[in-house]
Design a protein around this nucleic acid. Structure first.
Length: 555
RNA sequence: GUCCCAGUAGCUCAGUAGGAUAGAGCAACAGCCUUCUAAGCUGUGGGUCGCAGGUUCGAAUCCUGCCUGGGACACCA
């Protein structure tokens, strides 16, 4: 618990004590004390609506209740400077902000660890994300999924969860056969032969490249293999190339995984039959029309789902159930899947599967990433998977840069559509929020460097000198960071972090324009401000790290 | 037709598990560089929170109906 949280807990305890002392309610009747931070500064640092909540129990007017509570408060004990009663019965607290100066030593000492908490209680969480089919390049939607997933993992980790990042490789279904056929066609075409692409083939340029590489490496030799051998060869070869490329692109995008899980392994290790058998034992399986059905309607799904088709093959749901059973068997307390919007219809049946396997529905949380629309020159760039003309992750990294992408993709809440403005992302101007935040960090670095060059050592700073309004705003903002990270983790809202660092950067710029940090005529104040700057720098850097954005020392 | 997500300033979006006069950024307008980076700061204007009911001390937030946009509704993956 950091300084800020400790102070809030003190305040809550003191309010509760006052309610009891005023005999307004019994211990059991007191609702949870909620402190909020008012938007208006005039409403204090914190406010509580407890008087309104108690109106029914105490059978008194809220304002009267508020006065009774205030009369019983021990101000000094809870570091309260003054108290107001306002509006319908809000109690506004103005805090003695002396405590804020304790923040700086805390932040400087914790450094890269600042913002960490044990909110997650070391719960084991697995996050599965991206999981794009290894049949082509990653595109815009995957990039958003990767950004959000990675940021969420970082945030969960910071908030005290034990996180594993996993990529599920869809290497077993039809799409891989199509990949093999597509590679074959491109190989034949590279040999100059007239060979048709399969109907559902992958038309991406990358596959053409694979065909050309194969010709370089093998010439016509592959033609001597049997058709079956060729299929198997093209399949393995294509898969390996595609996977290597995915991993490489993602790594460049600063996204890595702890585990790459192969769907095929579920077949090879015979995991699917036992999973279905388990559901059968529990009575959720029935046969009809020659197919095997899973009664997902028992768990609120619209209709039951087929697991084994008439022809004896599995639907996609079967390996998916086996996969999730496998995840749960690995001992995770919580599973999080990050899916594209086009998969949201799958959520009810996966929740059904989780429950049928004997777990609470909320053991699995599914985050839906809404679509990304790309805009360039004010116009929407149309994308088509068919023609392979979709904008790829790699192209975008080259064109707009990784920092801007990472920032933009988590900037909005994941479940709302995102308009990605290429021109804005590319622009090196104050319109671009990434630069705004990075610039704040770079500015501080410059100041710290200059102080260093002037031989100013601020290790013996006295933070309590920092009394200006701007300095206090900065300190308050700094103090919120740990709680913001914890909230972002619990609500799975990485965009909170971008909002936070943007606000913190704004406070920094505002401070910078109001006060000159280095003033050799007033060394005490200079030292205190330098320590403050270092604390802001650390917090900004930690925040940026959570969303995968670099913190430049100069710009 | 059924289900999911969204609808908040001219544009792009926040809105902290029901709270006070609904907030940012961009765009518009007016100012600030002999001083640590102007990629910055300060100020002004801008709203029927899609529409209509309901719940209560109090609703952008919860409930019902409707309108609009997007997505999903396979024994595809």
């Amino acid at each position: 618990m950091n300084v800020m949280q400790k102070m809030q807990e003190n305040l809550k305890a003191e309010i509760k004590q006052a309610v009891l002392a005023a005999e307004l309610a019994s211990e059991a009747e007191i609702p949870m004390v909620i402190l909020e931070q008012p938007k208006e500064k005039a409403h204090g640092d914190y406010a509580t609506n407890i008087a309104m909540q108690l109106a029914k129990v105490a059978k008194k007017a809220p304002r009267q209740i508020a006065e009774d509570i205030v009369a019983q408060l021990d101000k000094s004990k809870a570091s309260i400077k003054s108290v107001d009663i306002a509006g319908p019965g809000f109690i506004n607290f103005f805090m003695d902000n002396q405590y804020l100066s304790n923040l700086i030593p805390t932040i400087l000492e914790q450094d890269e660890a600042y913002g960490a908490s044990n909110t997650g209680k070391a719960e084991k969480v697995q996050v599965e994300f991206v999981s794009a089919n290894p049949t082509g390049d990653l595109h815009l939607g995957h990039a958003r999924g990767a950004s959000v997933g990675d940021a969420l993992c970082n945030i969960l980790d910071k908030a005290g969860y034990e996180v594993q990042r996993e990529y599920y490789i869809n290497d077993a279904g039809n799409q891989i056969n199509n990949l093999a056929l597509s590679v074959q066609a491109r190989y034949m075409q590279a040999l100059g032969k007239d060979f048709p692409m399969p109907e559902d083939g992958y038309h991406g340029a990358d596959i053409i490249g694979i065909g050309e590489t194969l010709v370089k490496e093998h010439g016509e030799a592959l033609l001597e293999k049997t058709e079956e051998e060729q299929q198997s060869f093209f399949r393995e070869y294509g898969l390996k190339i595609e996977l290597d490329k995915l991993a490489k692109d993602l790594a460049q995008f600063r996204v890595t995984f702890d585990n790459w899980f192969s769907e095929t392994s579920l077949y090879e290790e015979h995991k699917i039959v036992p999973a279905i058998e388990l559901l059968k034992e529990k009575g959720y399986i029935y046969e009809q029309d020659g197919a095997t059905w899973f009664r997902t309607t028992d768990f609120g799904d619209d209709k039951d789902r087929v697991l084994i088709k008439q022809d004896g093959s599995y639907t996609y749901l079967s390996p998916d159930i086996a996969y999730h059973k496998n995840k749960l068997d690995r001992g995770f307390d919580k599973l999080i899947n990050i899916w594209g919007a086009d998969h949201h219809g799958y959520i009810p049946r996966m929740h059904a599967a989780i429950q049928a396997l004997g777990y609470d529905a909320d053991t699995l949380g599914v985050e839906i990433i809404q679509m990304v629309n790309l805009f360039e020159n004010g116009e929407r760039v149309k994308m088509s998977k068919r023609t392979g003309k979709a904008v790829t992750l790699r192209e975008l990294m080259e064109e707009v840069g990784i920092d801007a992408m990472r920032y933009f993709f988590v900037m909005r809440s994941a479940d709302s559509h995102l308009d990605f403005d290429m021109d804005l992302a590319k622009s090196q101007s104050n319109d671009n929020p990434v630069y705004y935040v990075q610039y704040a960090h770079a500015r501080i670095c410059t100041m710290l460097k200059q102080a260093d060059e002037k031989g100013i050592d601020y290790t013996d700073y006295n933070a309590s000198i920092l009394q200006s309004e701007k300095a206090e705003d900065l300190l308050k903002k700094l103090g919120e960071f740990t709680q913001v990270v914890a909230d972002a983790a619990e609500n799975r809202t990485p965009h909170r972090i971008t909002q936070y660092i943007f606000d913190l950067a704004a406070n920094l710029h505002s401070f910078y324009n109001a006060e000159k940090v280095i003033n050799e005529d007033d060394l005490d104040a200079t030292k205190a401000r330098l320590a403050l700057m270092q604390a802001v720098r650390i917090t900004l850097a930690n925040g940026m790290k959570l969303i995968g954005v670099q913190a430049p020392t100069s710009m």
